[in-house]
């Protein structure tokens, strides 16, 4: 085994692993994990372990990426409950205030690599129940105050801390609902 290329190929594995570790965005890390899988399969094949290379390609790259994708997709999302009619309003782009709030929320959570998912409920009562039942992370409701037409309520302490610093729109208030366990 005096093939000089083996050392170069083996050096690719720590290089790509370092790339994977240094990714901050989880979706980018998914793709880089695929690259690591391909390079690892190459290294294993060159070192003579054909069965390990095959397993790495099938399980390590394909299955692991699918499972990670499902995990990332289901955990890195903020579910915001709205009343059904206001969601229809958003679709029709009638209500500027709600549009602004949603865009602002989207940009805030995008900094943390989160996505905003709208969940619509038929009325305010169902919305409150869903918030207490931990189906959603936050609600955005119309309020009675004239200068502050919307009220955003969240039950997640960390989200509340983030919003308190960054949700600076005057059209919405912010409240924290401590969930009783």
């Amino acid at each position: 085994m005096n093939d000089s290329y083996i050392y170069v190929i083996a050096a690719l594995l720590p290089l790509t692993s370092l790339m994977l570790v240094l990714q901050s965005n989880p979706y980018h890390a998914l793709v880089v994990r695929g690259i690591v899988g391909a390079v690892a399969a190459l290294v294993y094949a060159v070192l003579g372990a054909a069965d390990v290379a095959l397993t790495e390609a099938l399980v390590g790259t394909m299955l692991a990426i699918m499972l990670y994708a499902v995990a990332v997709r289901s955990s890195l999302v903020m579910r915001l409950g709205v009343v059904a009619e206001s969601e229809a309003v958003v679709k029709a782009e009638g209500d500027r205030d709600l549009q602004d709030i949603l865009d602002h929320l989207r940009s805030i959570v995008a900094k943390r690599h989160l996505k905003l998912e709208l969940v619509s409920y038929p009325n305010e009562k169902a919305l409150q129940q869903a918030l207490i039942a931990k189906e959603i992370h936050a609600t955005c409701l119309k309020s009675e105050i004239e200068s502050q037409p919307y009220q955003t309520t969240t039950r997640v302490r960390h989200l509340y801390d983030i919003f308190q610093q960054e949700l600076t729109l005057p059209v919405t208030g912010l409240a924290y609902l401590s969930a009783e366990d």
Partner: peptide
């Protein structure tokens, strides 16, 4: 060689799913 060909065809399928 067989492993290489299998990876060639299966890796692309994984890429499409991704």
């Amino acid at each position: 060689g067989v492993v290489g060909v299998i990876i060639l065809s299966v890796g692309n399928a994984a890429l499409m799913l991704l």
